[in-house]
């Protein structure tokens, strides 16, 4: 039986062409930040909070839920280039990241964090956005390495996206080429501090100059 090589039927990308981050945020403005929990839950929380003295309950709930969220951030293994090797070293024996509760998980449907490690190229950007969209809320993104921060040493290339924040919103930027595992761990701990600042069970706090 003659076997022809498959002609790749590449479907047209279903991603949206975003000029930059502002357009992305416009689209997502209609979606409430934080947990996609029900309107009933939202209204109950608002009610408790507006009740005199109710802030005690919501603060305690915040503290508990934020502790739970930050202690179990599962990154999706999204290694693109050289930084992926340092990310693997961070996940491995010496700089163990599982002691922080982070279990690297291959499926984006079950993960909270996307560590973009490596150069984002124009061919890869729609795949990256697709994986990011598949992650359920609440989700965070860490841009690791100078290529993901701003295009890095390849910024002047024709096929390089000048920073992953042109594709997805980023919470923590970790500089370096590649950032050694100590730097990445520093970035992940900063991320945990950020997560601890969610207010009213799920809304992001405005940036705090002391910590962020």
């Amino acid at each position: 039986m003659a076997l022809d090589p498959p002609v790749p039927i590449v479907p047209a990308p279903i991603w949206r062409n975003f000029k930059d981050l502002q357009e992305w945020e416009e689209l997502h403005k209609t979606r409430p930040e934080g947990d996609k929990h029900s309107a009933l839950f939202e209204s109950i929380t608002e009610g408790i909070h507006s009740f005199p003295g109710g802030f005690v309950v919501t603060t305690a709930a915040d503290a508990f839920l934020n502790w739970a969220r930050k202690s179990s951030v599962w990154p999706v293994t999204f290694g693109l280039a050289c930084c992926a090797i340092e990310m693997m070293a961070t996940f491995a024996s010496r700089f163990d990241v599982e002691r922080l509760g982070m279990v690297p998980w291959a499926s984006p449907r079950h993960s909270d964090l996307m560590i973009v490690s490596g150069t984002v190229t124009i061919k890869m950007a729609p795949m990256l956005l697709r994986i990011y969209d598949q992650m359920p809320d609440p989700k965070w993104a860490v841009s690791m390495g100078s290529c993901a921060n701003s295009g890095g040493p390849f910024r002047h290339g024709y096929h390089v996206v000048k920073g992953v924040d042109r594709v997805i919103p980023v919470d923590v930027y970790v500089p370096g080429c590649p950032p050694p595992p100590e730097s990445l761990l520093n970035g992940l701990l900063l991320l945990q501090d950020q997560i601890a600042h969610f207010n009213k069970t799920g809304k992001k706090a405005p940036p705090n100059p002391k910590v962020d």
């Binding site: 000029k19 290339g157 000048k162």
Partner: peptide, 9 residues
């Protein structure tokens, strides 16, 4: 080398 490619500037 730095020919821009829409939609990225």
């Amino acid at each position: 080398v730095d020919t821009p490619h829409p939609p990225y500037r």
